[in-house]
Design a protein around this nucleic acid. Sequence first.
DNA 1: ATAAGTGCAAAAATTTTGCTTGTAA
DNA 2: TTACAAGCAAAATTTTTGCACTTAT
Lengths: 152, 152
Amino acid sequence: METRIERLCMANGLKMTGPRRAIARVLSEATGHPDVDELHRLAHRLDPRISLATVYRTVRLFEQHGILERRNLGSRRARYEMSGEHDHFHLIDQDSGKVIEFDEPETEQLMRRVAARHGFELVSLKIELFGRKARSEPARAEPERAGKIPAR
Amino acid sequence: METRIERLCMANGLKMTGPRRAIARVLSEATGHPDVDELHRLAHRLDPRISLATVYRTVRLFEQHGILERRNLGSRRARYEMSGEHDHFHLIDQDSGKVIEFDEPETEQLMRRVAARHGFELVSLKIELFGRKARSEPARAEPERAGKIPAR
DNA sequence: ATAAGTGCAAAAATTTTGCTTGTAA
DNA sequence: TTACAAGCAAAATTTTTGCACTTAT
């Protein structure tokens, strides 16, 4: 079976080598936001000859071709995820460190307009919300007018 | 004269030492988003005995107390800026690497609601837009319906 | 007085690179 | 065949730490 990333590599004219295939597979199957170490560990299971240097070179390459995106998500090391058709948000639980992903297409459009207002064409965006679980009920639609603003 | 950061340090019960005062001053006067090296270089001018280790320890401390915020802004190293009353955006010019800051209070409110919708109380947020100068005119209000979407 | 901060140098952690060998197109 | 990729180990970068000494409270 061929992964989406592999197709993207072909489309970008990248040589499809064993290591790249393995790393592409690992990325495709990753649920969260792996860092380089995780990628290496996993790819290493598919082919123990794969070196850490190759993982670094590969993610850099993939990133340059827009196949991957690098994030930080509050952690020190860089973390990676496949680029989607459109951007999405990350909501990081400050207590657990867990990352929740979700779409918000309207906001993306809004950001596009904001950039345009400053004379820029939006290429990509990163929106990271840091928060903690609200003690009150989860809030159905768009409750709390403006609510108490947390201390920051 | 006493800087805002110094006041914040006092308010947080932090010992006001020479190095901290110098670093606070440097941060107050910084226009952009200095990284640790820059901070050290500048603080070093105020007092040549200040070590890089102290700068690292100090920014970590300030960050823990919410006095400073750490950003990446597309660069590899961490960059710092004072926390403001409210969050603001960063628009990074992909060609020049220059960072433009601006407020967008309504969006902050919107993000607060988005977080609430997922059962979270927003503590802070990072919004980074990456773009390049539009070739057309800077666009006055909210032009280009949806415009050609860059290749990504 | 004393708990906390600092400098220095050493170490850890993260990322890149030089060079030789291997390999996809 | 040949330009590009990989492995390995060494180097470069970025950040943290141990320890003896200093300093703000």
